[in-house]
Structures are given as structure tokens and as C-alpha cells.
Design a protein around this nucleic acid. Structure first.
Lengths: 239, 239
DNA sequence: TGTACATCAGTGAACGCGCGTTCACTGATGTAC
DNA sequence: TGTACATCAGTGAACGCGCGTTCACTGATGTAC
């Protein structure tokens, strides 16, 4: 398989390289199927129809089974892509700000998450909305969800030590909070990590409220309101 | 119509009262249809099927059209009921605590909202989850959504004056926040109202995280974690 | 009180769609000798 | 380099389902005189 790719690199279009071409065409087909699926997601929600995707691509629905074992596998691929894309947006936003400007990094990252969600509402709903009925997300998806969160945790970690309100936890809850810290924030104490989790909830709560219509007829100045909330969380965390 | 109901009250089962009986049977049918629909919501999500409901009730699907003009009208009825039920739970929780114990009232009400959501996950998803594809919620539903929120706002109002962090708002955002205040919190200033809206976001963000699986493999001590978050919000608001 | 008529609930068939998945197959492309 | 064989993408038909909504209808219940 790896050899086929090398053949493409060396062969410069000669017939011998066709094996590599086949692999590349296959990858492009998968990309196109997912792109078409994403477009359908936008109008039909998670009621993803393989037949509709095939129809739009001008092929017969059974052909899709060459690429995905079924509807659920396609859904899983879309979910993984969405987490990855969201995570990449967060990383790019973080990288664009000077390391020592931790507040600036927090605002840039949270804004980038909001903007990604606004630009990809259906994909956001897929990963942060109500669960798709009849679909059980495989374990790999929960790992993929970490990517964006790690960026946020690192920012907090870079700003440590943090001071702010703390609350008593049972040993069991304290252990769980400590476990969250292992994703990249060893420098934070339990109380700071807990405040970070409060902010995490506020962040996605705010994005979901906006996207799912909870702000309709309530707040129209949405970018500003989002910034207010995220600034409030910064202060609350103690950054 | 009102006369028919009176006839039932007076007639004590005689044949003449059959008109009132018809109206009551009709109301009972509507209740039963909605109850069946709610049960289906739990397994199939918002992909509510009129045929499946009719089948379970032992009737033919077209018979449902005697009671609801179509699928969307049934969905609307379920949404209105859900908001109402949620609001009633909040009001009951609030009423169970001494008036001057504002912190106790806040905790009782927010807990009751979480518990309602856990007991009615599908209905919660219907009103606070991702929008149902192809369904446009009529304006009446946004009014119904207020009931639970008014309870929270009143608690804050009863605790006024509140002190806490404040942020600069544009005049446009300030006007929107002022408008929110009119639902029953005239005693609050803009900054306090904004903090309340932050808490509102955190509250439903926390419930949604728990219900939609975002806490899986992260936090298992959920009731305690919820209390921590809601206590944090109380302090943040300044109650 | 008794009877003629109107209202209403529910039926059953039909229309015109949709779906995921399987299977035997054709024909093109890639591989091994 | 040329040829025989293997791989693979995509087809088209079929299976066995599902759905919302409309419509003419039957038969029971309620109403007006």
C-alpha cells in the first residue's frame, strides 16, 4: 500500500503508476462523499440519507458501500472530521497570538470555536447537539473531542498559578477533576481546574444557545455578548 | 362549548349529558396521543412518526387527523407541554423554600430543572437540543419558554441589590439586557442582569452536557458537580 | 318524550414518496510473470 | 515488453420496510324540534 504511493511519486504519469492513482482516486471519492454528506447534514439534520448522497453524486446508492460499510460508519467519519476541524481551528487561533498574552489567546480560541460553529452549524449540532437517535458513537470519537479542549487547558496552564473561588469537593469528584488535569494542565490545582470546567460549560453553552435559537428575540448583539461571557469566564478562572 | 361542560356537571350520567362526554373523551384522546408520542420521542428522537403512534394506540393513522392537523402541530403541542411542565417543576421547587432563603431557592429550582431533564430526556432535547430539521417552531413556543426563566429571574430580583463584576456594554447590548429585565426583575441593574444571563447559560449548558453525553468518561459525580457549578453561579451573580 | 337530522370518530384504501442493504453482474484498471 | 489473471468501482434490480396525507365511507353519538 505504501509502495503504491511511492510509485506515484516516482512514475510521473506512466501507466505503471496506475495503482497509486487508484488509491488517490479512492481517497478523493471518500472526500467527495463526505463533502456531499456535510451539505445534506445542513438541510436534513442528522437524518442522513445514503440514497440522497448517491443521487447527488450521480451514482447508485449501493456504490457507496465500496467506501463505507453503512450509514453509521459514514456518520462516525463525519463526526471525527468535525472534531478534527474544530480542533484545528482552535490550534490555529491559539498559534496566532503571542505566547505570553494568555488572555488574548483565550479570547482568540473561544472566538474561533464560535465562528467555526456558526460556519458549520450542522456539524456542530452533530458533535455538540442532542444525540442522533439510533446511533451509538464509538469510543474513538470521544478521544477526537479532546483536541480543542486541550488547547483551552494549555492556555490556563500557561497562566498558572491561578487564583479564584474554590469549593469543597468529595474525594470522588476531586479524583475526577484531577483526571481531567492530565490532558495537559499539571500546573493547575483542583480548584482552578474546576473553574476551567465551569468555563468550558459556559463556552459551549453559549455557542449552543446561539446556534439552537435560544437567543432569538433575546440577544441580537451576539458577537459582543459572546465576548462579554468569555471575558467574564477569564476573570472568573483567574487568568 | 362551555355549556356542554356544565351539562356534564349537572346531568350525573344521564343520556342527555352525552355532549359533554364527547368533549371529555376528546380531551382524553388528545392526552393519550401526546403521551404515546412522548414515549416514542424517547426512543426515536424527534423523528416522530404519526403512523407509529397510531399503531401503538390500535387505530389507523388517518384517525389522528381528527385531533391534530399534522405532524408539526403535534410537535408544537409536545413542545408547549414540555415548557409548561418544566416551568411547573421550577415553580413548585421555588414554592417549597422559604422566601427569604434566596440561595436555597436558587439551588432548589436549578436542581429541579436538572431533575426534570433527567426524567424527561427526549422532551428536554426537544426544547433545548438541536433544532428539529424541517420544523419551524411557532412564536407561541418562545413565550412558553419563559415560564421557568421567570422563576430564576424573580429569585435574583428578590436578592437585589446584587454586587459583582460588571463589563462595559455597547448601547445596543445594554438595551437588550434591559429588555430581558422586564420579565420580572426591575430591581436589577444591567450588570447584575448580565451576570444572571451568564448563569442561565451555565445552567442549561451544564444540563445539556450531562444529557448529551459530554460528561461521559469525564465526570461521574454528576449531582455534586452540578451543585458545584450552581453554587459557583450564585457567588458569581452576587446572591 | 320521540323522531329526523347533523355532527363527529374512526376505517381502509390509495397516492406518491422515502429509506438501508444485499447480490449477481459488467467492464475497466492494475499486477505478476 | 506482452499477456493472463486478479482486483476493484460501479450498476441495476430487488427485498422489505418505512412515512405523511387525502378521501370517500360507515356507524355511532348528540341536538333540535
Amino acid at each position: 500500500v505504501g509502495g503504491a504511493v511511492e510509485a506515484v511519486e516516482q512514475g510521473k504519469g506512466r501507466a505503471k503508476t496506475a495503482g497509486g492513482v487508484r488509491a488517490r482516486v479512492r481517497a478523493e471519492m471518500i472526500t467527495e462523499i463526505k463533502a456531499t454528506a456535510r451539505r445534506h447534514l445542513a438541510t436534513d439534520g442528522a437524518n442522513l440519507s445514503l440514497r440522497a448522497i448517491a443521487r447527488e453524486m450521480g451514482m447508485v446508492s449501493s456504490a457507496l458501500y465500496r467506501y463505507f460499510a453503512g450509514r453509521d460508519e459514514l456518520l462516525t467519519a463525519l463526526i471525527l472530521d468535525a472534531y478534527d476541524d474544530l480542533g484545528a481551528a482552535a490550534e490555529a487561533a491559539d498559534a496566532s497570538i503571542a505566547r505570553d498574552d494568555v488572555r488574548g489567546r483565550w479570547m482568540a480560541v473561544t472566538r474561533s470555536l464560535r465562528e467555526w460553529a456558526l460556519a458549520h452549524p450542522a456539524e456542530y449540532a452533530l458533535i455538540y447537539g442532542s444525540p442522533v437517535p439510533g446511533y451509538a458513537a464509538p469510543a474513538e470519537t470521544t478521544a477526537a473531542a479532546l483536541r480543542a479542549i486541550v488547547v483551552l487547558v494549555r492556555i490556563m496552564s500557561d497562566a498558572a498559578p491561578l487564583t479564584g473561588p474554590s469549593y469543597p469537593f468529595s474525594p470522588a469528584l476531586a479524583a475526577e477533576i484531577a483526571r481531567v488535569r492530565t490532558v495537559g494542565a499539571d500546573g493547575l490545582d483542583d480548584a482552578a481546574m474546576a473553574r476551567g470546567m465551569v468555563a468550558w460549560t459556559e463556552l459551549f453553552g453559549a455557542i449552543s444557545f446561539e446556534l439552537f435559537g435560544r437567543l432569538n428575540n433575546v440577544v441580537d448583539q451576539r458577537a459582543e455578548w459572546f465576548d462579554v461571557q468569555m471575558t467574564a469566564m477569564l476573570d472568573y478562572i483567574g487568568v
